[in-house]
Design a binder for these strands. Structure first.
Lengths: 146, 146
DNA sequence: TGCATATCTCTCGCTGAGCGAGATTATTGC
DNA sequence: GCAATAATCTCGCTCAGCGAGAGATATGCA
C-alpha cells in the first residue's frame, strides 16, 4: 500500500487545515477567537444531539479548565451569541443556548461552503455515499478517545 | 435535500473537531502548543511538496505575524524539533527542517490512526475511493481561499 | 433531620502566546 | 556604491487560559 492509500489521509488532513483557517477567519471577522467559534459549534452540536448544553460539558469538550470555560462564556455572552440560564432541575448548573443572531452569522459565513458539500453529497450514489460515510466514521473513531 | 445530505457534512466537521482535540493532546503530551504542532505539520507538508520551508512561508500558512512566527520557531528549536539554517542562496532567509526525532514522535502518536484510515482506503473499490476523493477535494476547495 | 462530601460554576492572580512597531541584516536595481 | 525592498528578529504590551480556591447547590449517610 502506502502512497496510494495515504492519498485520502493527506487529503483529509488538508481539509482539516483549511477548515481551521476558515474558522479563524470567521472568528476574526466577528471579533472572536477560534476557541469561541469552537464553543459555538460545540453548543450547536450538543443541542442537535439533544444533550444538555452546560458550561461543564462545554469546558470538557473544548479541553479547557473551569476558569477558561467561564471566560469563553463571558465573551460569548457579552457579544450576545449565547445566553446563560440556571438549570431549574439542578441549580448548580448553567445551561447555555446559542442566540438566533449567532446562528444566522454562522449560516451567512459557512452557508455557501456547506451547500456546495451538500451538493456533492447529493450527486453521489447511495453506495458511494456509504463509502464516504465509512471513511469519515473510521476517521472520527480513529481520532477520538484514546 | 437537507438532513440526508447534511449528514456527511456534519460527519466531516465532527472529524475536524476530533482531529483538533487529538492534536492538542499530542501537543500537551510533548510540552508543545497546538500552534507548534500545526507548524510541524506545515513544515512537513512543505517538504513533501518540495517547497522551501522558510520562516516567512510558515508564518503566512499559520496566520501569524513575524513576531509570532519567530516565537514558534524558537520554541520548536529549543525542543529540538526543528533546525534553522540560513539559506545559502538568499542569506536573508531562514530554512527550517524538522528533525528525525520530531518525525518519529509524530509517527508514534498518529501512526495507528493513520494506518487504520489507510486500511479503510485500501478496502474501497476504485470507484468508492474516487467518491471519497471527490467529496474531500470539494471540501478542501469550499473551505479554501475566499 | 443535619452534617459531610461531591459537584458545578465563578473569582483572583499569574504565565506566556501572539500582536504592533520598528531594528537588523541581506539582496537588488539604478 | 546607495537607495529601496525583503526576510527575520527584538521589544513591550494585551489578553486567553491555567492553578488554586471560594461560593452555591445537591446527595449520601448517620
Amino acid at each position: 500500500m502506502d502512497d496510494k492509500n495515504l492519498e485520502l489521509v493527506h487529503l483529509l488532513r488538508a481539509v482539516t487545515v483549511e477548515f481551521g483557517l476558515r474558522q479563524a477567519e470567521f472568528a476574526a471577522a466577528n471579533g472572536m477567537h477560534t476557541t469561541d467559534v469552537r464553543a459555538l459549534i460545540c453548543l450547536l452540536d450538543a443541542t442537535r444531539a439533544a444533550e444538555p448544553a452546560t458550561a461543564g460539558l462545554l469546558g470538557t469538550r473544548l479541553g479547557l479548565n473551569s476558569a477558561g470555560t467561564t471566560a469563553v462564556i463571558d465573551r460569548l455572552e457579552r457579544l450576545g451569541h449565547v445566553t446563560r440560564t440556571r438549570d431549574p432541575e439542578d441549580r448548580r448548573r448553567v445551561l447555555l443556548s446559542v442566540t438566533p443572531e449567532a446562528i444566522r452569522l454562522g449560516q451567512d459565513f459557512f452557508g455557501p461552503a456547506i451547500a456546495e458539500l451538500a451538493g456533492v453529497s447529493e450527486s453521489l450514489t447511495p453506495a458511494e455515499r456509504d463509502a464516504v460515510r465509512r471513511f469519515l466514521t473510521t476517521a472520527r473513531a480513529a481520532f477520538s478517545g484514546a
